[in-house]
Amino acid sequence: MVIKAYISDRTVYLFLLVYLMALLILDTGGGDIWLASKFYALEGYQWSLQQHWFTEKILHKDARIVNYVACALVLLLTGYFNLKRSSHKLLADSFAALSLSLTVSFVLVAYLKAITNIACPWDLAMFGGAEPYFHLLQNRPSYLPYNQCFPAGHASVGYAWLALFYFFKKVKPQWQFIGLATGLILGVVLGLAQQLRGAHFLSHDLTTLALCFLSAKFCFMLFAPDSSKTVSKKL
């Protein structure tokens, strides 16, 4: 029932359509190269922000540490409320869905990074590296180094928290758009930082956004059967 409601949700189709159009423009249409070229030129035709203390230490390394702490807190709260499920069923289910969504988002992005073999901008000859550029669906020659730059792993540290939209929608509806803004702002800031460092193209970030959004939507539907039925009736 949950899966049926999920695949029949028109927002999913609309979101995927917009994502695929954006991917076509950015990858096949050259939007990725155009934007990265602008960043590269602004930095003096080098990735001068690659080792910068703010982009590398604060927005990359320190942001990951903060994310680990936040995820640990969510897991602790998930365990606590599930131990008291008899009196806190809504919170128990909501935190369980949040924990599952975060886990699925991080694991899915990491897995795809490991198998897609896509280079980062800083690896490319046009941006100071040594490799030719290949589109996402092109096969890379086996003699080239194996790269793990697609989708954007660090952006998932932000976009995974889009799940807060669905979390607050269940437990405190007036905060749901604050949750949405939190995930979007974190994802955009962390993703942009990596683009400025030469680590990713915009299409890498948008793919991570899509994966995190769909993971959150599906995981929360697993813990909200009543909401799923409502969606089915509407459609």
Rank of each mutant, 00 (worst) to 15 (best):
Y68K: 11
F106P: 05
H135G: 05
L76Y: 15
A63M: 15
F167W: 05
S87E: 15
P121I: 03
Q194L: 04
M1D: 00
A224G: 02
L222Y: 01
T116V: 03
F177D: 01
K4M: 02
A119L: 09
F220P: 02
F106E: 07
W122K: 07
D93L: 11
M21Q: 03
L102R: 10
E56Y: 13
N147G: 02
K217Y: 15
L214P: 01
L102P: 07
V188G: 06
V188Q: 02
K89C: 12
M21C: 11
L20V: 08
P225I: 00
D93E: 13
K61F: 09
I33F: 12
F220K: 07
F201P: 10
E43L: 14
S8V: 03
A216P: 05
W47A: 00
V2D: 03
H135M: 05
N67P: 06
L137Y: 14
W175L: 15
L75V: 14
H52E: 05
S156Y: 07
T230G: 13
L23D: 06
G191S: 03
W161R: 09
E56C: 06
A36T: 15
S227R: 12
F54Y: 10
K61C: 05
L91I: 11
A181T: 08
Y111H: 11
A210C: 10
F15I: 09
F106T: 11
K57I: 09
N82K: 01
L35S: 01
I25A: 01
G187W: 00
I118L: 10
A155R: 03
L144H: 12
V74G: 00
G191H: 07
D205G: 02
D32A: 00
K170Y: 08
L100E: 07
W175T: 05
K229Y: 13
L20Y: 06
N117L: 04
V231I: 14
M221L: 13
A199I: 01
L144M: 08
W34P: 02
S87I: 14
F177Y: 15
R10W: 15
S232N: 10
C120N: 12
K172Q: 10
T11C: 11
Q138C: 04
L186H: 07
W34G: 00
A114K: 15
G198W: 01
L42P: 13
A22E: 04
L91N: 14
L108I: 09
V69A: 09
L90S: 14
L83N: 12
Q194A: 03
A193Q: 04
I33K: 12
D9L: 12
K38I: 06
L83K: 14
K113W: 02
Y13Q: 06
L190W: 03
C149K: 11
L23Q: 01
E43F: 07
W175D: 08
G191M: 08
S156E: 02
L90R: 14
P145L: 00
K38A: 05
K113E: 03
A181I: 09
H204F: 01
L26T: 01
G29F: 06
Y133A: 04
A130Q: 14
L90Y: 11
Y80M: 03
L59S: 02
A97N: 08
T78Q: 13
L24N: 07
L24K: 09
S8Q: 13
C219T: 09
R85S: 07
I33S: 05
T103V: 08
F54G: 10
A5S: 15
S8E: 09
L49P: 06
P225Y: 04
F150R: 03
F54V: 13
L20A: 11
